[in-house]
């Protein structure tokens, strides 16, 4: 009897793999939704009053509507299923404090935060590249690694305040509150970018260090574009950072940092909405943001995995550890 052919040869494997990953994605989102639901159920006090928050004096009609919307008179299991059902149809519920659907509350603020995080990411990549290129000799490596450490360790909000003190108040290069202008976006994005740049640069440099141990890599990098690809494909593998941790860190720093940066720079955005929702205990909005964060993270992971498999065929064995 001949042995079965190796799994990687079956044409269905990538599809199955993708399905598995999608399942994992759903699992994460389901977990987040469940955690949010549990939190909402366990919160002390009448949920209707809690959800209305400061706007305590509203008509009985609205209170009845909230009860109906959340099935508060049903048993918890029924309520839970109902809630999942609504999520499945994309209905995030309504913010009773703002009297707006949660999706539109979040949707209104998303562009501002996306702009901020996008520019921050761009800055971070540029800065990380510069740092990596600058770290050539032993001394410069040491200086660069100290700079990285400082960038990673400085609290985001403090960096922001220092940048404001210097570039807005002392030098006057940047406006302070202009919304919608690129110039006003520079400092907040830079603030958000610094810790991310520090991490990326650390990872890059470790990859380079590992690579420079091999003569072929050194020459390849010196040639430019080929070097970059080489760096990506061969060298960084030696850096021990777990990609999930790193992606989580990047997304986390960007989202968590956005709360602080938007507060420091008095910018509109998702961070401010989150903070306001927390302070006013606008739980439907809080839940919506939890879900958004979970979906974002899961999606990014999925995209990373897909890209990675696409770039490195050796991993298409269907047995990549998760």
């Amino acid at each position: 009897m001949r042995p079965d052919p190796p799994k990687r040869a079956t044409p269905g494997a990538p599809v199955r793999w993708l399905l598995g990953r999608l399942g994992g994605l759903l699992l994460v989102v389901w977990g987040a939704a469940t955690a949010g639901f549990l939190a909402l159920t366990l919160i002390p006090g009448d949920p209707v009053e809690v959800m209305l928050g400061v706007q305590a004096q509203v008509s009985e009609q609205l209170k009845a509507q909230i009860r109906a919307d959340w099935g508060l008179d049903d048993p918890p299991i029924a309520r839970y299923l109902q809630y999942l059902g609504r999520l499945a149809t994309g209905d995030l519920g309504e913010s009773y404090q703002l009297r707006q659907p949660v999706s539109s509350v979040i949707g209104q603020q998303l562009p501002a935060t996306l702009q901020l995080t996008a520019l921050a990411l761009a800055f971070a990549l540029v800065l990380a590249t510069i740092a990596t290129l600058a770290a050539r000799g032993r001394r410069s490596t040491r200086i660069v690694s100290l700079v990285e450490l400082t960038a990673v360790s400085s609290p985001t909000f403090w960096t922001g305040l220092v940048l404001i003190a210097v570039f807005v108040f002392q030098v006057g290069w940047f406006p302070i509150a202009e919304t919608g202008s690129l110039r006003a976006l520079v400092l907040p994005a830079l603030t958000l970018a610094l810790p991310v740049a520090g991490v990326i640069s650390q990872v890059l440099r470790q990859g380079l260090d590992a690579a420079s141990a091999r003569p072929f890599a050194t020459t390849a990098i010196a040639r430019g574009i080929g070097g970059g690809r080489l760096l990506l494909r061969h060298t960084l593998r030696h850096a021990a950072a777990d990609s999930v941790t790193l992606v989580g860190y990047l997304v986390g720093t960007l989202i968590g940092g956005a709360v602080l940066v938007e507060t420091v720079f008095a910018r509109p955005g998702l961070g401010r909405v989150t903070l306001r929702a927390i302070i006013d205990r606008d739980l439907p909005v809080v839940l919506g943001i939890i879900l958004l964060a979970a979906v974002t993270f899961a999606l990014i992971n999925l995209v990373v995995d897909v890209l990675y498999r696409w770039i490195d065929p050796r991993l298409r064995t269907g047995s990549v550890a998760t």
């Binding site: 994460v28 977990g31 989580g248 860190y249 986390g252």
Partner: peptide
């Protein structure tokens, strides 16, 4: 894993 999918600060 689910918990780790959230940034610590968030």
């Amino acid at each position: 894993e689910v918990l780790m999918s959230f940034p610590e600060f968030l």
